[in-house]
Computed example of a mutant assay.
Amino acid sequence: MDLSDWFKGFERGINRLTPEQRASFFLECAKNCVKCETLQIYQELYEKANGDLDAFFEEADKLPGVRSEIIEKGTIYHLYFMECSCMLYHQGYVSTPLLCECSRQSILYVLHSLWKDKRIRVTICESILRGGQYCKMRIEICSME
């Protein structure tokens, strides 16, 4: 069996999951994916920004292939990825937009790791796998109070 045939079943399987089940499933995938390099990059940005959210997103805007906007200081941000970085997509194994939940979970995991005292919501606004020119995530930050 060709590996691409296995991934066709994978796509059908994730398509049958509820949004909550997909979130739980992709959280585990996202954790493994970001631990390789991404988490370290964002930890360095966090330290450079001294934990200040606005400064963090200003620094993120300087990363190659990433753009960010401060929509509402301390509260709402947009994070753009100019290309899909998923190897499953680039190697032609998976093309379903449901895979973008992994990216959403990656951002949630990274931000929760850095700001444990904040409630964070990430919404996928656009994605390359949905036909967009880039991936755009809306990030909303609230204190736990």
Rank of each mutant, 00 (worst) to 15 (best):
T38M: 09
T38H: 13
K116R: 12
D61Q: 02
L114R: 04
N15K: 15
I128C: 04
C29A: 12
Y89V: 03
Q105R: 08
K35R: 13
V94Q: 06
Y134I: 04
T123F: 08
K118G: 03
C102A: 03
S143Y: 12
I41A: 12
L111H: 14
A60P: 01
F10N: 05
G92A: 10
S143W: 10
S103D: 01
E20R: 06
E47H: 11
Q43L: 13
R119H: 11
T18C: 02
Q21C: 01
W115L: 07
P19D: 11
V110W: 02
C36N: 12
K73Q: 07
G74H: 08
L39V: 12
I120W: 11
G92H: 08
C135R: 02
D52F: 01
I124Y: 08
T75F: 11
G13Y: 15
D5Q: 11
N50S: 09
R22C: 04
W6L: 15
Q40T: 14
L39A: 12
T18L: 06
E83T: 06
V34Y: 05
I70T: 10
Y46V: 03
Y134G: 00
F25E: 07
E59C: 02
R16W: 08
K8Y: 08
C102D: 00
F56C: 02
R22H: 05
I141R: 09
G131L: 07
I71W: 08
E83Y: 08
Y89H: 12
F25R: 05
I120E: 13
T18P: 01
E140K: 13
G132A: 15
Y93W: 11
E69N: 09
L88I: 02
S113C: 08
D117G: 01
D117R: 03
R138A: 07
E72M: 06
Y46H: 14
S106V: 02
W115A: 05
P97Q: 13
E20N: 10
Y89D: 04
L99Q: 09
C86S: 09
D5L: 09
R22P: 02
G65V: 09
K62S: 07
D5H: 07
C142E: 15
G65Q: 04
S4Q: 09
E69L: 07
L79A: 02
S95P: 00
L108R: 09
P64W: 12
P97H: 11
A23I: 03
E69G: 01
